[in-house]
Design a protein around this nucleic acid. Structure first.
Length: 262
DNA sequence: CGTATCCTGACC
DNA sequence: GGTCAGGATACG
């Protein structure tokens, strides 16, 4: 799943193709994406120019010359595919932007859950997001303040983008293992000292993911897991050897070591 | 707080 | 042919 490091990588790809270039074509190919970006809105992108692409949490913002911004969220399975005009589109092409010079940025998304939307000039679309998980502003003391009233399990709280932006299921689970924290611990019970370990673990997990050159689709299903706990139910904990357990929290799988995460 | 919804490929 | 996966959002 694209989380902060993968979205940052995708944004870098998009920057190379789009920044400084005028949009020559824009089309939404799937009904589900037209809910947020109707055909007329897509058409209005033609003639505008991409001045820059920023990432906040898991959202990419294409800053346009007109003052508007195109927000792109990959959700589960979205990714950019780069091709030249006239080349066949990938099987799960859901939308594309064509640019001056002949390159095309194609949104490739099997499940078609990605969201494209236009933000009017001055419309702050990232206001509801907490600090980015890889930003220095994400630190233990302010995290403690954000969690003070939260009785939900820490796993659930970390997935709330208002608390911290950019974490998804996989790296949240990995960071909790790294920090030896029980995912069920009520968030407000964690002292700053424990949160310091957690923040450090999150930074470490994200930095490792960012260094990883392979894309998230790249690893074959049979290759050894690059995760310490995610999707390793019943396999030995890489720290203590106990059997990795799985539970469901908020409808999503949490993997953890029942022995060394307390 | 929990649960349904979107969407489709993968898997039994 | 039924179930599962899950980010964000909407709702009870």
């Amino acid at each position: 799943m694209p989380e902060l490091p993968e979205v940052e990588y995708a944004a870098a790809v998009a920057r190379r193709v789009a920044v400084g270039r005028t949009i020559t074509s824009a089309k939404v190919l799937h009904r589900s994406l037209r809910r947020a970006l109707p055909a007329r809105n897509a058409r209005s992108l033609v003639g505008d120019r991409v001045d820059g692409i920023e990432r906040r949490g898991k959202t990419q913002f294409f800053r346009l010359m007109s003052g508007r911004a195109l927000a792109v969220h990959f959700r589960m399975t979205g990714d950019w595919h780069v091709s030249a005009d006239g080349e066949p589109l990938p099987r799960h092409a859901r939308a594309y932007l064509g640019f001056e010079g002949g390159l095309r940025l194609v949104l490739d998304d099997p499940r078609a859950l990605s969201v494209l939307s236009l933000c009017a000039p001055g419309q702050g679309a990232a206001d509801h997001l907490g600090p980015d998980a890889d930003d220095p502003a994400f630190e233990p003391v302010s995290l403690a303040a954000a969690l003070r009233t939260r009785r939900a399990p820490i796993k659930i709280a970390l997935l709330d983008q208002r608390v911290v932006a950019g974490l998804g299921n996989i790296y949240t689970v990995e960071a909790l293992w790294q920090a030896r924290l029980n995912p069920r611990t009520p968030a407000h019970q964690l002292a700053v000292a424990r949160l310091r370990q957690l923040v450090r673990a999150i930074r470490r997990v994200l930095a490792k993911a960012a260094r990883n050159a392979e894309r998230y689709y790249g690893a074959g299903a049979s290759s050894p897991s690059r995760f310490a706990v995610y999707d390793r139910e019943g396999k030995p904990c890489r720290r203590c050897g106990a059997s990795i357990a799985r539970m469901v929290q908020g409808g999503r799988s949490t993997y953890f070591c029942p022995r060394c995460q307390r």
